[in-house]
Design a binder for these strands. Structure first.
Lengths: 165, 165
DNA sequence: CCTATTTCGGATATTCATTGTCCGATTAAA
DNA sequence: TTTAATCGGACAATGAATATCCGAAATAGG
């Protein structure tokens, strides 16, 4: 069980966008440079966020990305499923129907105890992530960062931000 | 995020071993045949369970596997970590320290808000699986299986079970 | 209105983990 | 001591995640 590295990058990028003033955006290349990661691959994650409707993309000269809805309506679960897809991590292949003592399909109306336990655990995982929005993330980052450093970030954002609808 | 197929197989195999009388075991090949899965690969999962101390392996003629401790002391989390390892699914690469506004290492004593949220969600996932032992799994299977079918399973076990210390 | 520039979007190689398989080390019994 | 059968770790094949490139789209300026 491994969560893709792109999820981390997308989450950090989305959190940074919280700090943008309304009507401003950031280019994919700027987001990559800010986090010190390969540009094209960060761009790929942004495409996924765009496809999922989490960010709004503007193309052409002076294009860029901005959050598509208020930050308190975007959860970490939204970000994760945008990158990884929303298919469950545990896939039951119904091996209880195989072999010499295989169960008949009509005996398998409800999922087996093992699949039920894993799906329950996954639901708990999902609920925890779904309870954390970008607002909480941004607040946490601000709380643990010195004021001086926050000013540097603000200046950098002013330099790099682009105006877009 | 994808849970390995071997986890499902190992869990089913471990649950089946609950039904063994004390002092009896099953060969890896028998476990594979019972579940209708490739023999060598099921054997690989059994090796992992053995290495983790969940099952006890006996080699040589009339060898086989049996549970290494009472079934109520073996949880689904034990089985899963035996196969997948216990490293966390979300790995924080500390990209907040990268780039033009990178944070200094001494500012990063505690993990960032994003990593904290994911680790909290993972803890919930783990706790849910750790609360389910093989006894509960076996009870669930028995409850949802017709009595006639259970008799067939019992007969098959008598045929295939081997005596071992 | 047209062109040029800059951006995002999808299609394309590469690397790494998972999946699947095999043969040798080990044990117990004959 | 031999033999047969088992588990254990080393070995390929497959698929997903990682990293990258070039074409499509849209805007700003001429």
């Amino acid at each position: 069980m491994q969560i893709s590295k792109g999820v981390e990058w997308a989450a950090h990028a989305a959190a940074l966008m919280c700090a943008l003033p309304p009507g401003k955006g950031l280019r994919a290349e700027a987001l990559a440079r800010y986090h010190g990661v390969p540009g094209p691959y960060m761009a790929k994650q942004m495409q996924a966020l765009s496809k999922a409707g989490i960010v709004h993309a503007a193309r052409g000269k002076h294009g860029g990305y901005r959050l598509a809805r208020p930050a308190d309506r975007i959860t970490l679960w939204d970000v994760m499923t945008a990158i990884e897809g929303d298919k469950p991590a545990f896939t039951c292949t119904e091996i209880r129907q195989n072999g010499p003592c295989g169960a008949k399909p009509e005996q398998c109306r409800q999922k087996c105890a093992i699949a039920a336990a894993f799906h329950s655990a996954e639901a708990a995982f999902r609920d925890h992530l779904d309870a954390v929005s970008l607002v909480e993330i941004a607040a946490g980052v601000v709380a643990e960062t010195p004021a001086e450093h926050l000013r540097d970030v603000g200046k950098w954002l002013e330099q790099e931000a682009v105006a877009l609808a």
